[in-house]
Write a protein that binds this DNA or RNA. Structure first.
Lengths: 210, 210, 210, 210
DNA sequence: TATGAATGAGTGTTCATTCAT
DNA sequence: AATGAATGAACACTCATTCAT
């Protein structure tokens, strides 16, 4: 017996399309600047579906944010840093962080938006806290191994180190527009990007050097 | 008998009040999130005056941004770093940058907003470009003196260094909300702030060390 | 049992109500004088619907204008003047034009508004151009038949004639207020209206007389 | 004794500049569309002066209107039609009316605006009523002389005649924009203007012909 | 006579959200 | 599951007018 309407089953696809459109719009325009109409149109979905699946614009923002953070945390785990020598592991992490920001520019503006709203939208995400703990432990383990092997100096706070690794890439990229104007450089030129990555690896290596 | 300045109906004072209110609102809510009505009310000014003096919400945003940047550039000049020993000068700059961000939290979110809008509002500010050139030259001069004295290694790009100095403070503070959640720390606790500043000074010193 | 048309939530009906209200308001107060709020209220519609269906106040004005012109052009076609003797056809047209202006006073002020705005809102209406061509051809055909029958003199430009037929009715009615003041007459008294129509028919007949 | 402040005496000049600017703006945009700010700027006058001299925007409109009407009435008197043969006098009047409309295009849109507002702004102008009476009498006298000389037919109402003389010129010019679109002609081309004037003279002459 | 500063009530337009089907 | 219609509150911006000097 042939099924009647194979139209259904789109629920997940519709949700995914909404989420992708929302991510793009929130990243591009911020929470206040993004428009529900525009998100619906870009998702080829009816506006009503957004409310059906996500409840409200803010709730949708919250889901987008959580997904974005879980994505980077999950990608970091796949780096398998525990199987690399400490120095290699650290350099890999610096490179990965930089590349991830470059490949996922929405991540940066989403995080900025989240903080403009004082982190309110992530407050209750236990999944995120768990993933973060795991991530910090990974960095700590690299540091510990490096100290044991005598290549890293002791006493480095893995959280501080990690903030710095993120900072030196993130800041350069998020402020690439005003930076380009103030310093009269094209921050996104291929050569400039390469130089910055080198500078950052150097910075981190000198920082942990025994 | 010299008359005092006839202060009532003072255009300059009104403009200044509008500017201050706008700075606060744009910093708090972003360009899209800020409300002209609210700015007017906080400035104890009539909404019409905003349009009279600044033309539009975006034009007002532009002025706020430019003023904010000029302010930090001007404060940096007052540090008189050329009269300090190179290492002291650099540490002073790192400390100043950190303190400025702490004392002027609006600066950070304003810069974020400027970049969310792709730097569009600063594109034509020659005043800013001039001030920035002067600032970069100041950092370059510190580096040169340090190299000459044998305390800094040669070949450091002053722009890269400066970006890093800004980054390691800026990122910590702008992302203090999500950071606090992910890393389960109070980023703004007095002790945490002190530790971060120490970490940053250390980072920069190791970076330039001969 | 056939269900009646589900009339509630009827987009067409809402559009029609908006159009009718807009016609009335634009006619009464002009494009600048009419208020979108008032149009919405008179249409028992939400203001948002006006923008949903018509885009903007000016676009709405454009649609109102085009509809108004198409309406008179369509009514003229229904006169079936080609089946009347040339003199009867012409008199019928003069009477119709006069009656149409009397019955549709909004038409006159709408046309005035259109011209105050330099015709900008009708520039791209191909429908209107088509209807106008058909109309001019109808008048031309009446003239031609009259000349062939020897009752009209030859060489009359149908466009000039038509402008005159419109003018002598239109001017009297559109300027009835200042006219009433200047000439100290009630232009809209039944007797005055009859006299003017007679005068106009006479004017046109003498103009085309062989 | 030397006069103190020779700055004064500008009062009349200021009023005149305001009046000229107001005429232009009201003609161009209508009563609702014209802006007090714009009028002040075009008059190189302070906005406050408009209120000082004229009381309100509507009062200013009233003065502009009255002046405009008095101007055409006064120009008509200067034609000295009583010294021309009846047919010449009539043709002169038709030509003058046409030329006046062409040379003073603001007059037409001002009259349209006056009537959009139902003549309200002219209701109490006794000066205008007086000038109008004189004008009607002039036309009546031409007709009477023509009848006496046997060149005009009797029984023509001077008011109706005058309305028609105005109408056939006024309508063509006020509706030149929509007319140009509908009839696909350039109503303002030199040749077109000449043809229309000829057509109008012909119309009037046939109308009064004995 | 003249003026720049200031204002309150609007004015077209947009928004996130809900209703009815 | 999905949709087009509808809404009310808000939004950026404007206006004619008055105040203070």
């Amino acid at each position: 017996m042939p099924r009647k309407k194979p139209r259904a089953r789109d629920a997940d696809a519709t949700k995914a399309r909404i989420l992708a459109a929302a991510k793009s719009e929130f990243a591009r325009l911020g929470l206040a600047g993004a428009r529900v109409d525009e998100i619906a149109e870009k998702a080829s979905a009816n506006k009503r579906m957004i409310y059906h699946y996500f409840g409200s614009k803010e709730d949708l923002f919250q889901v987008v944010l959580e997904e974005a953070y879980l994505d980077i945390r999950s990608a970091e785990q796949e780096l398998d840093l525990d199987h690399l020598a400490p120095r290699d592991a650290l350099e890999t992490l610096v490179r990965f962080t930089w590349d991830y920001y470059l490949d996922n520019p929405e991540f940066i503006t989403l995080v900025n938006s989240a903080n403009l709203h004082r982190g309110r939208h992530l407050e209750n995400s236990e999944r995120l806290r768990t993933a973060s703990r795991r991530f910090v432990n990974m960095v700590r383990s690299i540091l510990d191994r490096g100290v044991a092997e005598g290549v890293f100096r002791p006493g480095i706070d893995p959280v501080q180190l990690n903030i710095t690794i993120a900072a030196i890439g993130y800041y350069y990229l998020t402020n690439r527009f005003t930076g380009g104007i103030l310093f009269e450089r094209n921050f996104m030129a291929k050569k400039a990007l390469g130089q910055r990555l080198d500078f950052n690896i150097d910075t981190v290596m000198r920082l942990v050097q025994a």
